[in-house]
Design a protein around this nucleic acid. Structure first.
Length: 826
RNA sequence: GCGAGAGUGGCGGAACUGGCAGACGCGCUGGACUUAGGAUCCAGUGGGGCGACCCGUGGGGGUUCAAAUCCCCCCUUUCGCACCA
């Protein structure tokens, strides 16, 4: 034990305990945990350079959770890994002549050292790195499993093309028509690419959301919207004078008698089969060409709708009416059938289009609007209502009307009920070098053949690659890589030149954590079963429609393969807020405003910095970072240090013992109750991951301990404050635990989490607010179980209350137990 | 445009299912200790008023004994989605 005048050096204890944790393998999780397991992890990180204060915040959250769960006796896994493929490595290679692998592994080494210096306790024995062959071998294996099950296929499609990155992008990577990585505008290209059939899982992905009760509601809403299920019917219109069916998807078949024209998407394959007359053909072709060259933004809300008449007509199968057939780029080729029945009376888009080209507008649903609605400012009326001007269906109402029309269509064989989804198949080919090679071979005689599983991994060639972008994959020009033999016939064949979207790598990494070194299988199902599902997953909301859908998809797929007994990967998801600079600007290297935690940690020690980050704001909110916050947490830790070091522990005190409240003298009782009230609050705060109030509660507790508190109580409190602080200020807590309290072993292994004395809280005196007409006039400190009458008498005896009651009549007395008494007077 | 959330001192933020608004911290003011302090400690700190008290949670209305909290309208702001038929 040290002398009482000693003070804790926060920097030195940081280094000391990080070393001890590493030497004692504190963070290493067992291969097979028992029932009381806890799997907590932050999202896979891209090793872009070094860790910044935002990472530090995110990892501090999972670290705090992991440590508290350890104290609670759980077997905890808190792993980490690197999403190590990706474009920045390639760009660095071009700029500095470094090989992408060298650059990536160098960044990983630096970042890992930083994380350790910050005191984040990851189980590094389970580290995974997606760009290493022993990892991507299994990414390739998964590709082949998907292929074998018919879930990976090639198709020619108009795809998002980022000219800056020189690669295609999945839809969710080109949101708002900007590349998610470089923020440059995204164009279009027609290319043959690999896709995963995630749409086959749309219904299950949607239904599963209902079970994810531990996920933030807004995240669930975003996912539902992204999947975008809608129920309706596919109805066949027929090209006039032919047998050609032109199917349309609609959710409003009750408006079908209001169809006055039809619109096809410019890319619709049907356009070529319409038999457009020679004199019209030029105009149509020009329009299609022009539409193709527009960006997605130009084609959406910002501009007036336009289109071109084909000169052909279609027949409405319900009433036999002949309607003009148009082409318009407000119709999306990729949704539904790429054709719509236009009902300008009840659809705003069709209405705008009809207005522009002077097409007829019919109203066939009575929604109860006044005639002025249509007369004064004619508009579309999309509301549900009663069918009218609709022949035999007149009078049918709302959803029932919809069902009637669908039923009729099915009976007549002109339509069938259908469910459509907005979610598209996942485009995974990338025309880049630094990614996981696609394990497929193109053979002239056998076609596309997967590489034999025993030949995995297909390794990236290291030499002879020119990274300078040419618009096609750099691998395509590496003859040694490209030329191979067909796994089926043994003849000469070519490899696939593309690599995979990095979201593929991050869709299954959490599974590899359960069995990271396995070289015979992707993982041992027994180990995965023992650890999964993830109990707490922490990451940014920006992955709502990408990663967080893909990893659910893969989990379901692996479940279907029989490798997993679960169908959802993660029980609880927490979205942390961002850390921006003091002006609210995102931190970036180019702006030069990146705050590195490592400088702060070296100056103040890891714990004051971590407390400052956690104290600044609730974990799910944005932080405008300023170093000033560290002043407060450093002071607080110093005061706690002084308090803890002043305590006389003598023999080891039993930290979970209870004290009989009624026998304690006043100061001890005050201190003891303050402690248990703080503990109660902290337990609730931790459940919500609200660390700012957790810290505040300990500060408050420290402020509340009376100076003349007895030495036994002081030691009791000091020891417990150490435990309450441990998940958030782990290095200092360890130091106190061993050097000041004289305990052996790590507080995280043996300290235990404090136990609440709820009986003491229940018996504690309470402050009752006394009001007259809802205005506070006095306070009473009384026993909690006092009777109504007694409380009323006490309140009435208060001089201030008497003063405000003077000359008035009490009309009502309201008592809220343990809180207040209110006299309503008139 | 549609959907969801947010708006509280000079600042970050507290306030459980309606019950003392401003916990906790920063900053600031005054004081103590110091050769010195950007260290530490003590006191104060929403506004108004000498005071009893009054007013205060973006603005306006409402419900209630009681509203930051619930309801309606408006303003500002953040984030999703953005022709999905």
């Amino acid at each position: 034990m040290e002398t009482k005048t000693a003070r804790t050096d926060f920097v030195a204890v940081g280094e000391k305990w990080q070393k001890i944790w590493a030497e004692t393998h504190l963070a290493e999780a067992p291969e097979f945990p028992g029932k009381k397991k806890y799997f907590v992890m932050p999202m896979f990180a891209y090793p872009s350079g070094d860790i910044h204060i935002g990472h530090f915040r995110n990892f501090s959250i999972t670290d705090a959770i992991a440590r508290k769960k350890m104290m609670e006796g759980y077997e905890v896994m808190h792993p980490f890994g690197w999403d190590a493929f990706g474009l920045p490595a390639e760009q660095a290679a071009i700029k500095r002549g470094l090989h992408p692998e060298e650059w990536t592994l160098g960044n990983i080494a630096v970042s890992k050292a930083t994380l350790q210096t910050c005191g984040i306790l990851f189980d590094w024995s389970r580290e995974v790195t997606s760009c290493l062959p022993d990892y991507y071998r299994w990414t390739q294996w998964l590709f082949i499993q998907l292929y074998n099950r018919g879930l990976a296929y090639r198709k020619s499609a108009t795809v998002n093309w980022c000219g800056h990155c020189n690669t295609v992008l999945a839809n969710e990577q080109a949101e708002g028509d900007m590349c998610w990585l470089c923020h440059n505008p995204v164009g279009k290209r027609e290319l043959v690419q690999w896709f995963f059939k995630i749409t086959d899982y749309a219904e299950r992905l949607l239904a599963g959301i209902d079970t994810l009760e531990g996920w933030p509601e807004n995240l669930r809403t975003i996912q539902r919207g992204w999947i975008g299920r809608s129920e309706g019917v596919e109805i066949d219109f027929v090209l006039e004078g032919s047998d050609l069916k032109i199917p349309v998807f609609t959710t409003r078949p009750d408006t079908i008698f209001g169809v006055t024209f039809m619109t096809l998407a410019p890319e619709s394959p049907l356009v070529g089969q319409l038999g457009i007359s020679a004199e019209r053909r030029r105009a149509v072709e020009e329009y299609i060409e022009q539409a193709r060259n527009k960006t997605e933004i130009d084609r959406t809300a910002l501009t007036e709708k336009d289109g071109v008449f084909t000169g052909r007509y279609a027949i409405n199968p319900l009433n036999g009416e002949r309607v003009q057939l148009w082409i318009g780029d407000y119709v999306l080729a990729s949704y539904g059938t790429g054709a719509v029945m236009a009902v300008p009376g009840h659809d705003e888009r069709d209405f705008d289009f009809a207005k522009k080209y002077g097409l007829e507008i019919k109203y066939v649903i009575n929604t109860g609007r006044s005639d002025d609605f249509y007369r004064d400012k004619p508009a579309a009326d999309p509301a549900y209502g009663t069918m009218m001007n609709s022949g035999p269906f007149d009078g049918a109402v709302g959803r029932e009307a919809i069902h009637k029309v669908i039923e009729y269509c099915e009976k007549q064989g002109v339509g069938r009920a259908r469910t459509n989804y907005k979610i598209r198949d996942w485009l995974i080919s990338r025309q880049r070098y630094w990614g996981c090679p696609i394990p497929m071979v193109h053979c002239d005689s056998c076609g596309i053949v997967p590489v034999s599983e025993t030949d995995l991994p297909v390794e990236l060639p290291r030499k002879g690659i020119d990274f300078l972008p040419t618009g096609r994959s750099p691998l395509a020009d590496a003859a040694e890589y490209m030329n191979t033999t067909c796994p089926k016939c043994g003849g000469a064949a070519q490899r696939d030149p593309d690599t995979m979207d990095t979201f593929m790598c991050s869709s299954w990494y959490f599974l590899r954590y359960t069995d990271p070194k396995n070289d015979r299988a992707i993982f041992d199902p027994k180990k995965a079963t023992a650890w999964l599902p993830i109990d707490m997953y922490v990451g940014g909301i920006e992955h709502a429609t990408g990663h967080l859908i893909y990893f659910r998809f893969f989990t379901k797929f692996l479940h279907d393969l029989g490798l997993l007994n679960i169908d959802e990967p993660d029980l609880r998801m927490f979205n942390h807020g961002m850390v921006n600079d003091a002006q609210g600007q995102k931190m970036s290297k180019s702006k030069g405003n990146v705050v590195s935690p490592i400088d702060l940690v070296r100056q103040y020690g890891p714990d004051p910095v971590r407390l400052a980050v956690l104290f600044a704001s609730p974990s799910d909110k944005e932080i405008l970072w300023s170093n000033a916050g560290i002043t407060g947490t450093e002071r607080f830790l110093s005061r706690a240090d002084a308090f803890i070091r002043a305590a006389e522990f003598g023999e080891q005190v039993e930290l979970d013992r209870t004290f009989p409240v009624e026998q304690l003298h006043e100061s001890d009782r005050t201190a003891y109750l303050a402690y248990h009230l703080a503990l109660k609050k902290i337990d609730a705060d931790f459940e919500r991951l609200q660390f700012n109030t957790h810290i505040a509660a300990i500060m408050e507790l420290l402020n509340a301990v009376p100076a003349d508190c007895g030495s036994a109580m002081q030691a009791h409190l000091a020891g417990n404050i150490v435990r309450l602080l441990a998940p958030l200020a782990p290095h200092v807590a360890e130091e106190w635990w061993s050097a000041v309290l004289g305990r052996g072993g790590s507080i995280f292994a043996t300290g235990g989490w404090p136990v609440l004395d709820s009986a003491a809280i229940a018996a504690a005196t309470v402050t009752i607010v006394c009001q007259v007409n809802s205005k506070v006039r006095a306070q009473l400190t009384i026993a909690p179980d006092i009777g109504r009458e007694e409380l009323e008498q006490l309140a009435l005896a208060e001089p201030k209350i008497q003063k405000h009651l003077e000359g008035k009549k009490i009309r009502q007395t309201i008592i809220v137990p343990r809180r207040l008494i209110n006299f309503v007077v008139g």
